[in-house]
Structure formats: C-alpha cells, structure tokens
C-alpha cells in the first residue's frame, strides 16, 4: 500500500530469499560431501524435533537461556551504569576506559578457562564469561551515547531550569538509546555464542554440553540440530527484546522520510 509498507514487505521477502539460498547451499554441500561431512537441513530439523520430543532439548535450552540471559542482563546493567557514569564525568571515563579496553581485549576463550578454574565446570562459569564479554561492549555504547549528546539541547534544558529527572527522561535517555541499542544487540548476539562455548568447554550442561556430547559420539545431525537451536534462540530474543525499541527509535526520523508532510501551512 504505502511505500514504507511496500519496502517492509520487500525487505522481508528478500530476507527469506537469502535464508532459502543459505539452505540450498547447505543442501548442495550435503549432496556434494555426503552425510558424514554435512547432514542435510531436513535431517538436522528432524533431529531437533526428535530432541524436543525426547525431552532432551528443553532442559538444555533452559540452562543455556539462563546462562546467556543472566550474564547478558548483569553485563548490560553494569555496562550501562558504568558507561553513563564514564560519559557524564570525564575523570571516571578516563579511569574506566583502559580497564574496559583490556576486558574487551581478553579473548572470551581465556575468560572461559579462567572462569572454569574459578567456579568449576558446574558453577557460574558460562554466565560469568557472558557477563565479562557483554559488559565492555555495552559500556562503550553507553559512554558514547552520553558523550554524543547535543550540547545545544543540554543548554536549552539548563536555561529552562529542567530538573535532573526531566533531563534524564527527556534528553539523556533518548540520545543514549541511539548508541546503546546497537551495543545491546551485539552483546546479546555474543551472549549466546559465548555461553554455548563456555558450556562446550566445561563439558557440562546446556546446549553447549549437549554439543560436546554429540561431538564425542561423532553425531553430526545432532550437532547441527543444536546449532540450529542456538540460532533460533538468538533470532527470537532479538525479536522480543530489541525489535520493539528499535522500531520506536526509527519512528523518530519518520518526518524526514515524508517530504510531502513537511510542506504544509508554513507561512500561516
């Protein structure tokens, strides 16, 4: 109907076409190299359904979600709080920035090893690793969001005597979200990967633990099924948690995309 709606439908269709191409390439790989190298997508999906039916997938899923989301939320809260602080006060920022750079620089795999040594394979190693990986990413986004505030708007708020809470709600938060949201999306994507990785290395529970077990049995279809599950998780949570906020942010620029609406009355 409207151009923007048409664009949305087109985007969805093209996205599906891309996914279909990926599935086709997977299937082609399966035909070229055989089921011992790459099981077919249909087989992987079948296996996933069987894993759910057998009551194996759900408990593993629950553990991984708890690890990934718990670590992500803790990291997001900590990262946002410290990032906002760093953005508002430059001494805090100057002190925290190198610490965060180092935290970001340590490879997640090294954190996994450390966490396993500290907490043991059954403890909070995956959640901790996720926290440590997510925090500096969110920190950078939050600090940048605060630093990138429009000083002219801040001055306007000052002149009008806006109290701190109003400035936070009406000025700081909207500007912060612009930078914070992409950082949160990135951190969430990392959360699943890191959590599964830590679980694989810990050889314990969760989807990662199941992948480790599938590998031990050289069970490729099951490995692919678990990978499918992780990807699905990422998509679902990205859609539930971040898409609504992203949509609200996009609405802000709406006026610019409709020049016809910007014309009217003017001279009055």
């Amino acid at each position: 109907m409207t151009p923007s709606r048409l664009a949305r439908v087109a985007r969805l269709l093209l996205g599906l076409a891309g996914l279909a191409a990926l599935a086709l390439a997977w299937e082609a790989g399966h035909r070229a190299f055989g089921p011992f190298v790459l099981p077919s997508p249909v087989e992987a999906a079948d296996t996933l359904i069987r894993l759910f039916a057998d009551g194996i997938a759900l408990p593993a899923l629950r553990v991984t979600v708890a690890n990934a989301l718990g670590g992500f939320l803790a990291g997001a809260v900590l990262g946002t709080a410290l990032g906002v602080l760093a953005g508002l006060s430059w001494p805090v920022g100057a002190a925290l920035r190198p610490v965060m750079t180092i935290t970001l620089g340590v490879p997640p795999i090294a954190w996994v090893v450390l966490a396993l040594l500290w907490f043991g394979p059954q403890g909070g190693a995956p959640a901790f690793t996720v926290l440590v990986t997510a925090m500096p990413i969110v920190f950078a986004g939050a600090a940048q969001g605060v630093c990138a505030r429009d000083p002219k708007l801040s001055e306007m708020a000052r002149v009008y005597g806006a109290p701190p809470m109003l400035r936070l709600r009406a000025l700081l938060l909207p500007q912060l979200l612009d930078h914070l949201l992409p950082a949160l999306a990135t951190a969430l994507a990392f959360a699943w990967k890191v959590s599964v990785m830590a679980e694989v290395l810990g050889g314990g529970t969760g989807i990662g633990g199941a992948i480790a077990e599938a590998r031990a049995h050289l069970d490729l279809p099951e490995t692919m099924a678990w990978i499918l599950l992780v990807v699905l998780l990422l998509l679902v949570f990205d859609g539930i948690l971040l898409s609504p906020i992203r949509r609200r942010l996009a609405e802000r620029g709406e006026g610019a995309s409709r020049p016809a609406a910007a014309r009217p009355v003017g001279a009055g």
């Binding site: 620029g253 006026g255 609406a261 910007a262 009217p264 009355v265 003017g266 009055g268």
Partner: peptide, 11 residues
C-alpha cells in the same frame, strides 16, 4: 502531534 522533522522551518 508532529515531530520537529515533519514541520517546516517557520513552524
């Protein structure tokens, strides 16, 4: 109810 971007400079 329009946001500033949807308003002309005079508005």
């Amino acid at each position: 109810e329009k946001r500033p971007l949807a308003l002309s400079g005079g508005m």
